[in-house]
Simulated assay, not measured.
Amino acid sequence: MLVVEGLQASYGRSQVLFDIVLGIDAGEVVTLLGRNGMGKTTTIRAIMGLNRPKAGSIRFDGREIAGLPPERIARLGIGLVPEGRRVFPTLTVRENLVATAASGRHRADPWDLDRIYQLFPRLAERRKQRAGTLSGGEQQMLAIGRALMTNPRLLILDEATEGLAPLVRAEIWRCLALLKAEGEAILVVDKNLAALKRLADRHVIIEKGRTIWSGDTAGLDAAPELTQRSLGV
């Protein structure tokens, strides 16, 4: 579904990505791992068109999307839950959700308000509340719900549970497990390696803007020196 090859990206004259390689199949959950500052968020920004690639290829369903504007990439079927959530603070929960709603004709059971409220009952309780007054965990639920309302074929989450209370983190992992069971393709960044290994089919490790390893959980477990060196685990 998504194939990234030789991706390079810069901020001005400062090059951040040198050779990112990763792929995600339909229905697959893939993690993007690495220490802080290694290029995970820049990779996601490049995929979403928020940072124009310097070189390399990004193909979605065989179509080259590198350099396309973000709105076109989103319309092709990629939904983003950005780092820091970034909900619309002055809009209500319901208004945040309907603001991004898109047709789900390609899905047997498209995402709509009722399905989002079933997934996150707390959002139903707070549907008339302004998003800026929600707790951090509730805002993350809203950010996920907002991305799902675009009815994406690929969902990308940057720092899925960062800064959240343990009970809220558990709720987010439960949600992602349900999405995986429904066949949603997911690319996820997070620091909770144990939870990621339970959820994901494959893992990609990047270091200093380069992909240095990819494989399944069994392969990751068999390389403790790799996780110690590259992830600090």
Rank of each mutant, 00 (worst) to 15 (best):
L113G: 09
G23A: 15
A177Y: 10
S230I: 04
A195N: 02
K40T: 12
E182D: 15
G49T: 14
G56M: 08
G27E: 01
I58G: 05
T31W: 08
K54V: 15
N96F: 06
Q139C: 08
E159Q: 04
L134S: 12
E207I: 11
I186Q: 08
P224W: 08
A66Q: 06
R174N: 14
L7E: 10
D61V: 14
V3G: 02
L80T: 12
I73C: 07
V98N: 01
I206G: 12
I47F: 09
R13H: 12
G23F: 12
G232P: 11
G136P: 04
E171G: 07
Q140K: 04
K180Y: 05
I116Q: 08
W173V: 06
V204C: 05
L7D: 06
D61P: 01
V233E: 07
L76H: 00
A194Y: 12
P53F: 01
M149Y: 02
L196V: 11
K191T: 14
I156C: 01
I212M: 02
A165T: 08
L76F: 03
G183Q: 03
L196G: 01
L119G: 00
K208R: 13
L33H: 03
A9F: 06
I20C: 04
G136M: 12
F88A: 01
A143Y: 13
P224L: 09
A160S: 08
E5H: 02
I186H: 01
A181H: 04
L134Q: 07
T133C: 02
I58N: 03
R105N: 07
G6V: 13
N96K: 00
K208T: 13
L22R: 03
V233H: 05
V93P: 04
D114H: 08
N96Y: 03
E64I: 03
Q15E: 15
I172S: 08
L50D: 02
L97G: 08
K208H: 14
G6S: 12
A195I: 01
V168W: 07
E184I: 12
D25G: 13
Y117D: 08
I73A: 06
R45W: 06
L220Y: 10
E182M: 12
A74E: 12
F18P: 04
R130N: 14
A222R: 03
L50N: 05
P69H: 03
L123F: 05
T227W: 02
N151G: 13
A185G: 03
M1I: 15
W111V: 07
T227K: 05
V233K: 04
V3M: 02
L91P: 06
T211A: 14
K197G: 11
V4D: 06
A55G: 08
Q8W: 09
A26K: 13
L187H: 03
G77Q: 02
L231H: 08
L176E: 09
A170T: 11
A143M: 05
P224M: 10
I186Y: 10
S230E: 11
R86L: 14
T41Y: 11
K208A: 14
